[in-house]
Design a protein around this nucleic acid. Structure first.
Lengths: 234, 234
DNA sequence: AAAAATAAGTGTCATTTTTACACTCATTAA
DNA sequence: TTAATGAGTGTAAAAATGACACTTATTTTT
């Protein structure tokens, strides 16, 4: 039994995170400049340490490079083609993260030469990082269609028009605002605040907040193929 | 740069597959007896070899242990808690597979002491394999609700009542047969054959086949949050 | 040969959900 | 005071869903 283990080759294990940020208008991905080539950028990545699990390592790396904690972070896919990293064989576990650009500490970004790039204007990426980003976009679109994860990209208080802009950006479309707000509000996941947003429009839009207890409870349920299962997400 | 690589610890990388099989009545998982403890069973697993990618390794292992090729195989999640394998630190990439029990070569099953277990009557499992199975069931339910992957668990020709039984098993419920066949047929993914099933019922049910070109094309699309996107899955 | 038994197959109606579409309102700046 | 701007809201038609029951084709039994 033990001999079986000893006969095996070990590999390096890396973590790479696709970090999405929304700036109010556009969806962006955070990239860092990787020394080697001039115009090649890379995802936020690092190595798995002996004392930590995968999710923990992804969180640690995210914190080291952005200063952010308590971020929405979800395992995406593991990449392990033999030659994906030309230096050494490396298996990379990709995570994707949703952050609010405003929360992001730009001092750190300077230290690490990190920059936000629009989804539609990405530079050449290291290794298979382009594939990772593509998959992450697909997954974000897929997931946001059914789970209310969009909130993760916005500040704590946000307006319906802001939320609509976010969804417009995710799906690169222009939703009808009446239908949009009806659908969003029908989830009963938003709490309307007294406060109005100043400065953006004359009239001002009401701020909303996520109903956190409800939101967290729901991060499980399923869809409407199964009758009688409560369909809670939109 | 290279020094960074050399400073890192490598780990063993394993693959474990949750193999679902449908026998016409029940959903089952294929497990093998793992030497060590008397009543402990294990998922189909093996080690990643230097010359293969993750999906390739999962396919190879599946073939070695079941004789099956061309199986629906999808990466599920990667597990890497530091102490998940008490012998050596191992990162395991879990895949799930859907097979038709009838295609399965039972000679091989004897060689490896493999057995089908009902989802509702699983024995104690090795390491974190129980978690893997739970996640795979969730994923199967989640995915089958929106993607027509159910077919993968049936023979090439199948009847609507068979398909309904499969979905009944997946969701542990009893769908209304009128609504079920309406929904299924509305996907336009099934081709009705002349042939009828003999022996099961007096009247006999028509066989159907998946419209493969359509099916394969669709293994991408999304949901109805995005208007004007064609909603093709049910 | 007729009758009974069995599972297959199908239709309707009420309700809910979705989509398309346009005007009024609140506030600020001119 | 008036004009300008984005916020906010309602309705009607169409589509999808869910609940529900009878007829049909075939085999087995009598």
């Amino acid at each position: 039994m033990i001999e079986q283990y000893q006969a095996q080759k070990p590999y390096l294990v890396a973590l790479d995170s696709i970090i999405f940020g929304f700036d109010g208008e556009q969806l962006n991905v955070l990239l860092v400049k990787r020394g080697i080539e001039e115009d090649t950028w890379s995802l936020m990545g690092g190595w798995l340490r002996p004392d930590e699990g995968l999710a923990g390592a992804a969180e640690r790396i995210l914190f080291e490079l952005t200063g952010l904690t308590n971020v929405y972070l979800e395992q995406l896919h593991t990449f392990g083609e033999p030659d994906r990293d030309p230096v050494t064989r490396t298996v990379s576990v990709a995570y994707f993260a949703l952050v609010n650009v405003a929360d992001f500490d730009s001092k750190i970004s300077e230290t690490y030469q990190a920059r936000w790039f629009s989804l539609y204007d990405l530079p050449p990426l290291l290794f298979d990082h382009g594939e990772m980003v593509d998959l992450a976009i697909r997954q974000l679109r897929y997931k946001a269609a059914q789970h209310p994860i969009g909130f993760e990209l916005l500040p704590e208080k946000f307006t319906i028009p802001q939320l609509k802009k976010l969804y417009d950006a995710i799906y690169d479309t222009d939703f009808d605002k009446r239908n949009f707000s009806r659908k969003i509000l029908s989830t009963n996941l938003l709490i309307k605040l007294e406060e109005k947003q100043k400065g953006v429009s004359r009239r001002g839009a009401y701020f909303y907040q996520v109903d956190l207890p409800k939101y967290q409870q729901l991060t499980k349920s399923f869809l409407n193929f199964v009758p009688h299962s409560e369909t809670i997400f939109w």
